[in-house]
Design a protein around this nucleic acid. Structure first.
Lengths: 202, 202, 202, 202
DNA sequence: TATGAATGAGGGTTCATTCAT
DNA sequence: AATGAATGAACCCTCATTCAT
């Protein structure tokens, strides 16, 4: 059944998807609202019917990323698995999203993770929360005696996230896609093994 | 003696330094030629006397970074030290530059390392060379039996550079400076220990 | 009985009232059709069912003002009272309307009486008629020997209307309301006394 | 001698004059920056070289009006002449400006005196000052016993300014020009005689 | 009647770049 | 070498109006 609400979602979704693509291709700054409208197959003004301005559309994109990520993080941090499994959960969110909607990952890394240009206070807040939650997982590992205690939790967190992000980043720049679950496992294992081995308590 | 050539360097240098600061503060896109001229204390028409356009000025900045980095990498890759020392050499280039000219590091990470928006083919080329050279160091470590062989050299390289970049990146975003050589050693050790432990052949 | 025609008047009236308020608050140019629809509590597409466009709606507002004013002027100019009473009749139309529907007065003064921006030929026509009718009252006073003859009727008219309009205008800008009939009498007397004294034949 | 400073004034002056004309013709809201640039015979962007935005250009126009008016008012209120002469001074500022730069008068009446749409707090301030200064002249006349005391000074002021403004306003709308000094004297006399006669102490 | 999605023509503003002096 | 006036192509956003439902 295609009712009005359904139609609304169609257009709004089309704009959202178009924004993903255009921002990924050109970066937020170079992405023009007219590009997005054209790619969505709608008129210029309609974008403003669904999103109040460019920043708002950008935030909608970022929220899609953050909302899912925090949902995962919530599960992960509440879970009873060991550190390795929890970190694997984080890694898999990145890799799964990269498979399903690589634009989200690309935009996160390009526009937020390393760029101060677009950092509004609200955006910075979420970014910091993300790091803090990851750090709490690492800290738990240290407290359990699984991870070494002679390095600050924040340092280990940085190293872990850095390795993860750069992996994705390299794939983004090289325009590589994840072709198989096996490849995904291999990447996750590489990151985890190096990190856990290097960071484990001995 | 202050001759014409000397003066030329003065102005050119002033523009260069101003560009570093403005691009670091606002990002390449938001940096206006007029901002740079004002910061350099000259009229903005004069910028075009020394640099043919904004991209050209940007490339001059990037080249400063790359030229020094490749000089280091050349020394490192030709050297006879063990892998750890070589990787330490790379880390120290980042940290030293961060101390002396943190804008160069900031711009590299913000505008190049994670951003596709500014990636011209030429720029991508240098970036790939950098990764390839680092990878050759890692590969050498694998061949020497120091680093584990069950993970692709490219993977290990990515993890290493990711940890390094993210460390710097975190400091850039938090606007932290390196206060002492001791701190620099500590950071280098953290990165290296985790990486080498995780990546070492056992 | 609430039949279709009745409903039509309800909505049309609501739009009309909403237009009055919004145009008064923001001015014609800044008043958006969507503002008016929202204030009327209907969808903005519906406005176009009752009024063919923004100008048409504006004209409806102006006509409400003019139609009543000309009805009064007709009575006044046909009447047998002296000039003072007739002029008092005009003043009271302004003041009464200001009490009942101050938006009409406000819009007249703000958008028509002093503004050339919105003056279409048709609107200018009605404005000129108004001045001409007022002038005929003044002329009658001159012919009767009540008002001085050494000044052109047009001049006296201008002075009279100017004093009147500015009084209202000041109240509009200061957002003052007429609180009592006594106050209304006082204002009318002030204007009339000064004008009649100044303009009376001696 | 036509030096750089002179040239600058040429263009800035041309923009100012063009703004006067376009705003007078179309009203501030309908006046486009591109209209002004075209009328000034310069490129679009150059307007922004001299004025930071449309509001700024508008304020420049208004300031030209206010600065001269307040200079006159200062002289007038400090002078030792009788009320009639002082009020004549105010009337003559309006009429003289109407002769020399009728656009200034037109814009003042159309966009400021009767319009709330463009009233920023700063602009309202100047407007109120103008009224207050005029009122002080009227008050002085009351204190001297020349003007009647049974009406509030504010009422008399309103009547005086209303008559004056409407006179000008009528000429603006009818697109009339003042053809001779004799005509100017006649207008001033009409306003003054009616007002002073009506307002004089008897 | 009634809704609100959809359209697109402006209009203000920015800023890299050119060029006369 | 040096200035900053001058140009004009973008680009974001608004909003009157149309139209499918």
């Amino acid at each position: 059944m295609r009712d009005a609400a359904h139609l609304r979602e169609d257009k709004e979704g089309a704009i959202f998807e178009a924004a993903l693509k255009v921002i990924t291709e050109k970066g937020f700054h170079r992405a023009r609202m007219s590009d997005i409208a054209r790619k969505a197959g709608i008129s210029y003004g309609l974008v403003y019917h669904y999103y109040s301005n460019k920043e708002d559309l950008f935030d909608a994109v970022l929220n899609r990323w953050w909302d899912h990520l925090f949902a995962i993080l919530k599960d992960v941090s509440r879970g009873v698995e060991d550190v390795t499994s929890k970190l694997r959960g984080i890694i898999f969110y990145f890799l799964n999203t990269y498979q399903d909607k690589f634009e989200l990952v690309s935009i996160f890394i390009t526009e937020i993770s390393r760029s101060t240009a677009n950092l509004t206070p609200r955006r910075l807040e979420r970014f910091k929360s993300f790091i803090a939650l990851t750090e709490s997982v690492i800290k738990e590992g240290q407290d359990n005696g699984v991870l070494r205690n002679d390095l600050k939790a924040r340092y280990l967190t940085t190293i872990f996230l850095g390795a993860l992000e750069t992996f994705i980043s390299t794939m983004v720049i090289a325009n590589q896609r994840i072709k198989s679950n096996a490849q995904k496992e291999r990447i996750a294992d590489s990151i985890l093994e190096v990190f856990i081995n290097g960071a484990k308590n001995v």
